[in-house]
């Protein structure tokens, strides 16, 4: 067991290292850009919203893929030109499609994505309520006081037990 933990810890450490190094590499090559902190903040915010298409589960703020670097350069250029956030996002969507957005827009083909979980929740709740109701009915139905006939039989059975 101890051995396993040691292994896990080692793997975790390696992962953290791997994670850390790209950030350092990119900060070295992009050192000059940090000159304007306000623009840099906007860049970070924007690029966190945008997916890197090379390594699809990273945004372009985190990714050190070539393309992500290029796109950060483009965004930086657009910020310098005084473009609005919407203009910059539109620039990306026009080239890479909605897929580039980490938060998919609510529209026809994404309705299932947005409403699916809510629909599942409603379905689950409805099933649960229906089940509970049916169960309550069943319990109520079975919980009737014994009829005279049944009471007599129960009495007889109990007596039989006592006699044994």
């Amino acid at each position: 067991m101890k051995h396993l933990f040691a292994k896990l810890a080692a793997i975790l450490a390696v992962c953290m290292l791997l994670n850390a190094s790209p950030a350092q590499a990119s900060s070295a090559t992009e050192a000059a850009l940090a000159a304007d902190p306000v623009a840099e903040k906007r860049l970070t915010k924007l690029s966190e919203e945008l997916r890197c298409l090379v390594c699809q589960n990273q945004n372009i703020a985190d990714s050190n893929a070539e393309l992500a670097q290029d796109l950060r350069r483009e965004i930086r250029g657009m910020i310098k030109e005084g473009k609005s956030d919407k203009e910059i996002i539109d620039f990306m969507v026009a080239r890479y499609g909605d897929f580039v957005l980490y938060r998919p827009p609510v529209q026809g083909n994404t309705l299932l994505l947005w409403l699916g979980p809510i629909a599942l929740l409603v379905f689950g709740l409805a099933t649960l309520i229906a089940y509970q109701r049916r169960r309550a009915e069943r319990v109520a139905a079975e919980d009737k006081p014994l009829s005279a006939d049944e009471a007599g039989r129960a009495e007889a059975l109990l007596k039989e037990l006592d006699n044994k």
């Binding site: 298409l53 090379v54 070539e66 393309l67 290029d70 796109l71 483009e74 080239r95 890479y96 499609g97």
Partner: peptide
């Protein structure tokens, strides 16, 4: 050379 046209064409792979 700098991949700017690539970006305009949405090149990612």
């Amino acid at each position: 050379l700098d991949g700017r046209v690539g970006i305009d064409y949405g090149v990612y792979g």
